[in-house]
Design a protein around this nucleic acid. Structure first.
Lengths: 336, 336
DNA sequence: CTGAAAGCGCTAACAG
DNA sequence: CTGTTAGCGCTTTCAG
């Protein structure tokens, strides 16, 4: 239960004041060469580690960023993490990751943690465009950047990074239409989330561009998880006039949709064309290799981190929205 | 940039001392009903949130656990997270997740963070049996539990939770042998990690039990990532006398191995039998549905969290190792 | 260039 | 039952 060694102990051993030790450690002020050397020696022999808690209390802010992701079981979010970490570490900040699990309650709880721990920045992929609450952070001067998704109320107060969901969905839908599938369904996510809205809108706009009459019964709003994708697909397949193809708006739902198709012995791409959103390491390995919309996940994270470093928007600096472009990866599932 | 409201402000508004406010908030000591009500009212009107940093400094420990996982892009680890979170939250602790990325340097860095932030516990899946350094934590009285993997040096000082890797690998290998594949290869992970050792040993022991002569050239040590799995598989396929089947010791390498087989037009299970370690949501969707060894991921996390709650081992309480059993999930890839 | 002193916001003795 | 007091370990004026 070793007592932690404090700055006092170091000061005593080096024969200087705590203030001098602090200056040496933080590179503030100017300290005579020989004293600085003595301090460093003392730090080494005592194996001193500054107490980050005391430092944060004094400085009124911790060198820690909080990254609140919507779903830790979704590889899109986890592969974004690396982008955030690399930029944060280069800037001397630690990143702590929290999993809100698409649950507004958990998200709120983690925002409380950020507040309580005086974190110096928060990167959030909000569980809801309308209901996610970032004001308390902003009021305390903690900068917020949203990733992947945006917030309805705060266009002027938070930066954000998104991919062009509308365009991604258009690419996906147009690919299926171009391959000769006459009717295309869409399984999107919860509409409280901006990505689900954008992907649905892009789907509709692609139908319109192609002069295809939209059939509302071909749209399903699911939960961005496997079971939701499966149920949505099963219900589409039960239609009297089932769709010839389907655009599935995220990776986890694509898994469910594929499972449903297999369960009903619907073969892809023969009986049904399919394009999924998010490319995965295993996308080429499914029974019929998957055509997908790939997002630049690392860049999404890295851009968000850079925006956080820029500091919050203000009167002179308007809030930025960085929009990254997705790409269509054509494999077998969209071409019969 | 709202000034944070402090316990002093609340005390003033409620007409009591800060100590009384503290007692009400923490439920310590006894406070007269009417005073407590006034305090709670003041807390509400001021929207007061205790400063967790100051509290940690005073209490010399934060109500935060750190979970250091080896690889955030590996679904095994991410699905373990939920188990940890649920137990932690029930115990009033927050969990921060850190990604060591199988890198001893990053792992060390995050251990420094735990030390600096005076976290109240650490759950770690060590990047190396020998080189991962937890002593500094133990010296400061911070309890450590290892998950998924164990440490060589500290059997008596840290609890751990693992799955029975030896048995899992035996099940996998025996399944392939039982299906009639004469020669079975093994692609395992970095041998500095105990899971990789255990799975290799289990593979060997299954060969021995079946009276199959081991062929050392059929063993590959890779990196637990897709590229390593792919390269290992390619090199196995190039052998003059290639194996009839392969046991791949983790999920990410299985993806690489499947990609390699496809690239070389090796068909599964006809040309090659395959069993992977870790079951995934998409395991049934690959070209040939995958036979896998499934681990109880949620329980691994939850058990680790419960061990952390129990407190560190001591003279009276020996270190525990909880061993959970994996199960064989038979699908197409192991039966020709 | 260096040290003394004050205080970040909270909790835990200790009095009353 | 409640208030006063004294720090937790650090950084940062302010003197010297």
């Amino acid at each position: 239960m070793g007592q932690a060694v404090t700055i006092q102990d170091v000061a005593k051993l080096a024969g200087v004041s705590p203030a001098t030790v602090s200056r040496v450690i933080n590179g503030n002020g100017v300290v005579a060469r020989h004293l600085a050397d003595r301090v460093r020696a003392a730090v080494d022999t005592l194996d001193y580690r500054p107490n980050a808690v005391a430092r944060s209390l004094r400085r009124k802010s911790a060198a820690v960023w909080q990254l609140i992701i919507s779903d830790i079981e979704n590889p899109f979010f986890t592969s974004m993490v690396r982008g955030v970490e690399d930029v944060a570490h280069a800037a001397g900040c630690s990143v702590v990751l929290c999993n809100a699990d698409e649950d507004l309650g958990k998200e709120r709880r983690y925002i409380e943690v950020a507040l309580a721990e005086r974190m110096s920045g928060v990167i959030l992929s909000p569980a809801s465009e309308e209901e996610s609450e970032v004001e308390p952070l902003l009021r305390r001067g903690i900068p917020v950047v949203t990733v992947d998704r945006t917030l309805a109320e705060r266009p002027a107060t938070v930066h954000s990074v998104v991919t062009d969901n509308h365009r991604g969905a258009q690419l996906a839908t147009a690919e299926l239409l171009g391959a000769g599938y006459k009717s295309v369904a869409c399984i999107t996510g919860p509409l409280r989330v901006t990505t689900a809205q954008g992907r649905l809108a892009g789907y509709r706009s692609a139908l319109a561009s192609a002069g295809v009459r939209p059939r509302p019964e071909l749209v399903r709003v699911a939960d961005y998880k496997e079971t939701g994708g499966r149920d949505a697909m099963l219900s589409l397949l039960e239609l009297a006039d089932p769709p010839e193809a389907v655009f599935v708006a995220n990776n986890r739902m694509t898994i469910g949709a594929l499972a449903a198709a297999r369960q009903r012995s619907v073969s892809i791409p023969g009986d049904l064309g399919l394009v999924g959103f998010d490319d995965m390491t295993w996308s080429a390995l499914t029974c019929c290799p998957l055509t997908t919309i790939a997002q630049p996940t690392y860049d999404v994270g890295a851009s968000a981190a850079r925006l956080l470093l820029e500091g919050p928007p203000g009167p002179s600096r308007p809030a930025k929205t960085v929009v990254l472009q997705p790409t269509l990866v054509v494999r077998g599932s969209s071409r019969r």
